[in-house]
Simulated scan of single mutants.
Amino acid sequence: MKSYQLIHELISLVEQLEQQNPEREVTMQDFAGFMVHTVGNSAPNVTSAARLSHDVRFGKNEITAQEQAFQLDNNIGQLFVYMSRYAKSYIKKALDDTALLTAEDFTALAILLTHDNLSKTELIQYNLQEKTSGTEVIRRLLAAGLIKQWDDAKDKRSRQIAITDQGKQLLYTVFEDMNHVGKMISGNLTVSEKLTLRYLLQKLEDFHQQHHQQKTISNKADLKRVTEALTDQK
């Protein structure tokens, strides 16, 4: 039975809870709270042995390396990468037969829809892109006639860009297909689970957006410094 190890761990947790409450019958609510508290306060590098056997991408070799990959924080990062790739594949399908080639093309145009105009630098920053890839997105949108550009009256070194009527028309056509993408990404989650996930993702977005705006992570040393500070706060 593949789930035996997980069942054994759950039974052990129930036994621990009962030992702490010898005078009364424990409830499911008691166990849920106890389990969250116990797992949450376990070692930060805790691994999921059961999870190792469920990821079809991993074989049976190099278990030590796999345990490293499935440390809690690493596993969360891994799942984010998977979700990002799934999302990009769905978005690409939704953009078939349009002038938009990538998710970044779509988000750049959507950002411009909500502004009168932006500088190229502003759009690239809002779209969370590097300068080279962001410039390429702008070039594609200009070539397709979805945006327009002109010299900045206050800064001759800068150019302003705005969405065209053609770009707006395309976006509103694409929005319907993108609604299907959103539903596909949230998958089989219940409404309650979606609300919880949105709350947690927004918390992470606020954290990462602050570091992105302040440009606090520019090299490996910065990564180490910030993550060590995070560990000290826990």
Rank of each mutant, 00 (worst) to 15 (best):
Y4H: 05
L6C: 05
I7F: 10
H8E: 12
E9N: 11
I11W: 06
I11E: 13
I11Q: 10
E15L: 09
E23F: 14
Q29G: 07
F34H: 05
M35C: 12
T38Q: 15
N41D: 13
S42F: 09
V46G: 06
V46Y: 11
V46F: 07
T47D: 05
A49F: 09
L52F: 09
L52S: 07
D55F: 08
R57Y: 09
N61I: 13
E62V: 14
T64P: 04
A65I: 15
Q66C: 07
N74C: 08
N75A: 15
G77R: 11
Q78M: 14
Q78V: 02
F80L: 11
F80M: 12
R85L: 13
S89D: 09
D97E: 11
D97I: 00
L101D: 06
T107G: 01
L109F: 02
I111Q: 02
L113T: 01
T114A: 11
T114S: 13
L118E: 02
K120W: 00
K120N: 05
Q125E: 12
Q125W: 01
Q125M: 03
Q129K: 06
E130D: 15
K131I: 10
I138P: 01
R140N: 08
A144D: 00
G145W: 00
G145L: 01
Q149I: 02
Q149M: 06
D151V: 14
K154Y: 13
K154S: 14
K156I: 14
R157T: 11
S158L: 07
S158E: 14
I163E: 01
Q169M: 04
L171V: 04
Y172N: 08
Y172S: 04
V174L: 03
F175K: 07
M178W: 06
H180G: 04
T190S: 15
V191W: 02
E193A: 05
K194L: 08
L200D: 09
L201D: 04
E205D: 15
D206S: 11
F207P: 00
F207W: 07
Q210Y: 10
Q210H: 12
H211Y: 08
H212Q: 06
K215E: 09
K215N: 07
I217G: 03
N219A: 05
K220Y: 14
A221M: 08
K224D: 15
R225P: 04
T227I: 11
L230N: 12
Q233T: 11
K234C: 08
